[in-house]
Amino acid sequence: METAIISGKGGTGKSCIAAAFASLLNPVVLADCDVETANLFLLFDPLPEETQVFIGGRSAHIDGTLCTNCGLCMEYCRYDAVYLSDGQVAIDEANCEGCGLCSRVCPRQAIAMVDNDKSRLYSGSFRHGQMIYARLAPGEDNSGKLVGLVREKASALALDKQIEDILIDGPPGIGCPVMSAITGVDRVVIVTEPSMSGLLDLQRLLEVVNGFGPSTWVILNKHDLHPAMARRIESFCRKSGIAIAGKLPFDPLVPEAMVHCKSIIEWAPHSGVARELKKIWNTITNQTDNNLWKHKTRVSTPD
């Protein structure tokens, strides 16, 4: 079973909740798909057993000895990535999208496309099973592709180590990396918080998720910080037919656990938040399994 935990808005507590579920599942394959700013390895300190290089696109490099400054590349580039520096044509790396058109049009073959090879994918064991995480080099493209690679690795490890559950800690936003993190999963858990931004980001995220069709759950984190807004989000979910798996209160124990590099389940297993998280996990798994079971019987019934 693959479960993805996502949130449109950052900082809603997605990683802390993913860490808690990982402690509950034990053994689990934990895939940190927040490849731009991976954090779970800080809590779980996995033993890096394997490192892979990820090519996150390409960028153009000009050979100054061949370039005649004809400016054709500048004319064709649509990203303002070619500019004149003291009369010499140069590439602006921040703007270059790696399309390679400049190197195609160059009459002197002075522009080479070089692989961006600074991103890495790590995998190894940790105290609750296996873990995969990645590090996208700053400014590099294709984080969606890297997310896909992290998930591929997770599936391979799950098969290899005979572990049933894969837990995905997803990236923020609504873009390509998120779609890559939830494609084909069995369950999606959206973590949100009771604020105006929390509600708006949840609505935008649902537009994306609805296209994918797995069973979807919402966890309302820190609900007591703004009870009225929490009610508004609850009623929005009811109207849209999205089940709320549970609500978590704001509790200083959660950041405290993080500071000690523990999940809340490990740090305070008998706290209210930990108990609530266990309940939430049971709700999600029982319901999803029931649905799947129903689905399976329906499919296997002969006409």
Binding site: E36, N39, L42, L43, N95, G139, C261
Partner: peptide, 30 residues
């Protein structure tokens, strides 16, 4: 958020950058 293309594009056009963080291991690492 993040450190990918959208972030780099934004800060590359800035004259000064204010980084907002929080006092946790996650905040520090990022």
């Amino acid at each position: 958020p993040g450190i990918g293309c959208p972030f780099v594009q934004t800060v590359s056009l800035a004259d000064y950058v204010i980084l907002v963080t929080e006092p946790t291991p996650f905040g520090l690492s990022d």
